[in-house]
Amino acid sequence: MRLVEITPDNVLEACALRVRPGQEGFVAPVARSPAEAYASPDVARPRLVYDGDRLVAFVRGFFGVRFDPDDPRDRPRSGPWRPAVSAGHQGRGYGRFAVGAVCEEVRRRGGSRVTVSWKPGGHGPEGFSTGLGFRPTGGVSGDQVVAELDLGPAAQVQCP
């Protein structure tokens, strides 16, 4: 498995990535994420996950983002945003690899905590995220549950 930047050569393939039926309401289409990321290149890095020559997943890392700048309690956060594994490749470790790569990038940038959020529901990513060790903070972002994973040296759970 390897991470690859989105380029003119693979952008159409990236935009064609689809999750399983029933999951569409829990993650934005992959085409939306690179467009948003390239509008804010200082805080978001979209990447594709390939297994050999096959595109199997997408992940967008965000770094040092304050979601509510008007709230003095809102600290900068980093983590994976909108990971999506293609319908035919789920359950094979590609999502874990993608999230793990973002965690490593957060560590390289000096971070010790990774944040994710999800929309609650039966076909959503809650089970995947909690299975990796993310724990709800009790906070919400819009209609999404906010969860975190401690990456510090004393962490009980290591990032995937």
Results as ranks from 00 to 15, higher is better:
117 S>C: 11
145 V>G: 06
134 F>D: 08
134 F>V: 10
147 A>H: 12
129 S>D: 14
130 T>H: 06
146 V>Y: 02
126 E>Q: 13
135 R>D: 06
138 G>S: 14
118 W>R: 01
116 V>M: 10
140 V>K: 15
129 S>A: 12
133 G>L: 12
144 Q>H: 14
116 V>P: 00
125 P>E: 09
131 G>I: 02
127 G>Q: 06
118 W>I: 04
142 G>M: 06
140 V>I: 03
140 V>T: 13
127 G>R: 15
121 G>V: 10
125 P>V: 04
126 E>F: 04
142 G>T: 06
142 G>P: 09
129 S>H: 14
137 T>Y: 06
116 V>Y: 06
129 S>K: 08
127 G>M: 00
136 P>T: 09
146 V>N: 03
146 V>P: 00
127 G>A: 11
127 G>V: 00
126 E>R: 15
121 G>R: 02
133 G>D: 08
128 F>H: 12
120 P>C: 00
133 G>V: 09
117 S>E: 10
130 T>V: 05
136 P>C: 14
145 V>L: 09
125 P>W: 00
141 S>W: 10
121 G>Q: 10
122 G>T: 02
139 G>P: 04
123 H>F: 14
116 V>T: 12
129 S>V: 04
141 S>H: 13
148 E>I: 08
118 W>Q: 05
137 T>N: 02
127 G>W: 07
124 G>T: 02
141 S>A: 05
140 V>F: 09
141 S>Y: 10
120 P>M: 03
122 G>I: 01
146 V>G: 04
148 E>D: 14
130 T>R: 15
134 F>K: 11
141 S>C: 11
139 G>Y: 12
147 A>Y: 03
124 G>R: 05
152 G>Q: 01
118 W>M: 11
122 G>C: 00
139 G>F: 08
118 W>N: 03
149 L>M: 13
132 L>P: 00
144 Q>M: 11
135 R>A: 13
136 P>A: 13
116 V>S: 03
138 G>R: 09
138 G>N: 00
134 F>T: 02
151 L>S: 04
129 S>R: 05
143 D>M: 08
127 G>Y: 09
125 P>C: 11
140 V>A: 14
132 L>I: 00
137 T>K: 03
128 F>G: 01
137 T>S: 06
142 G>N: 08
